[in-house]
Write a protein that binds this DNA or RNA. Sequence first.
DNA 1: CAAAAAAGCAACCAAAAGGTTGCTTTTTTG
DNA 2: CAAAAAAGCAACCTTTTGGTTGCTTTTTTG
Lengths: 124, 124
Amino acid sequence: MSAHSSNPDTPRGVSAITQSSEALAHVFAALGDPTRLKLVAVLCAGGAFSIAQLTANTQISRQGVTKHLHVLAEAGVVRDVKQGRERLWQLEPAQVEAARQTLEAIGREWDTALQKLKVFAESL
Amino acid sequence: MSAHSSNPDTPRGVSAITQSSEALAHVFAALGDPTRLKLVAVLCAGGAFSIAQLTANTQISRQGVTKHLHVLAEAGVVRDVKQGRERLWQLEPAQVEAARQTLEAIGREWDTALQKLKVFAESL
DNA sequence: CAAAAAAGCAACCAAAAGGTTGCTTTTTTG
DNA sequence: CAAAAAAGCAACCTTTTGGTTGCTTTTTTG
């Protein structure tokens, strides 16, 4: 499959979004689970919490919560610090900010997309 | 488990994010796959495309793409219109906008979170 | 109208996700 | 130092996900 720009099936201007879609998808996937989203919400509102504290807010076991926290950590959404016998978790702003910016970019391109759609529709 | 506000394990102010975390996680999960994210990017940049066209941009089979499109559709991220013998897909702004607003909300609450974290750290 | 194009349907499969339970290790505290 | 608290490790299990292949249906076009 030749990837020349003359391929009529491949629209241009996809830019920033297509680029790091691998890492970005990772962040979205991390946020794509109700339990994890709630964990993020709690961390977001409060600061740093232990696993036991975070577990108290959920319906699942401590080990289940631990697994979710590791998923979030691998996506770079949260960070942990060992403090004595407990491990405290907090948000890591950078990655979520990147995700937000992507959605913003998509939002910005919508005007363009809708205009093109209009032109396209008129050509039928 | 009594859910009184006096429970020290349950931080307050989680607000908007906790609410519809079910539906919201659905949207994030839909965006949480490289292939789907690219599909969204293409749709975002271009308007309305057929399955065959969208498949040309990927490495997977047409049926694979179709499945992904249905995942996006169930999350409300895309919409489809049958046009003759082909089915055209386009973005559905509303849901993605909601996701963006959530991330923005998280971003806004970070200042608060970091301040609380500072106070918390000082109390050690 | 027959052939080609586009998409739909359904069965199937391997791998990953989400969760559990049971036991061990580390750190705190009476 | 012994007991309790917090967390780590590992095995296990079920459901979902991401993908395939093969065949059918619908619509267009020569």
